[in-house]
Amino acid sequence: MNSRVRGRWFLGGLGFLAGFYALLIVGLLVADVGFTSWGECRAALQSEAIRHSIVLSFVSCTLAALLSLIVAVPAGYLLSRFRFRGSRLLDSLFDIPIVLPPLVVGLSLLILFQTAVGQWFEGHVMEMTYELPGVVLAQFVVACAFAVRTMRLCFDGIDPRPEQVARTLGCTRAQAFFRVTLPEARGGVIAAGSLAFARALGEFGPILVFSGATRMKTEVLPTTVFLELSIGNLQAALAVSLLMVLAAISVLILARVFGMRGGLL
């Protein structure tokens, strides 16, 4: 076998494996869409409980994404631009929510708010366990880790020289960051916010453990899928799933359009 033929076999092998996975994903989506109809989806979406879950999901995910950005932009910048004692440890620490089993995140939150500090917070600031703010917190814990990772990659890709020049032109560190670096990172900020929103939207385990699955209260979209499946209402579960698929694809397109192809998206 000459080298040209071997090259074709190699490329063919790559194409076969990548194509298999692409077909699997397309198959999943097509099967979902083919299994239901517009009428059944509309009927499911008219349920008051499901409408409440849709509104709560979009509000809580938006809040979780905004909170994630407030933390992720400075944290990503700090990790990208500065080397200090413990910076590697901090970098690894921010990855823990990504690799931790979701149920463990929920259980850990539950235990945190049983400690003296947690109890004080619930007594004096706001109640979290099995309450609405707890839903946002459970979503934030995981979503923020993804946002930090995205922002770090974004700042890694931005040349620090213009920022340094800005400091010689009269800027403080903060002015150089806000006037020069942050405008350049706006694509990354949108990608990080979108990713945080998408992660928050899919969050189920931590919310189930920390906030419960109370209808018309702490029920978000993944909880709805779980509750509808548990009572055998496959059509309603599928309708809500398709809504989440639609939201996830929209977020993916948004992030790709704003050029974070090298990141987690």
Partner: peptide
């Protein structure tokens, strides 16, 4: 200060 590549502000 004028660095080697100019380092203009991209935006």
């Amino acid at each position: 200060y004028v660095p080697q590549d100019g380092a203009l502000f991209p935006t």
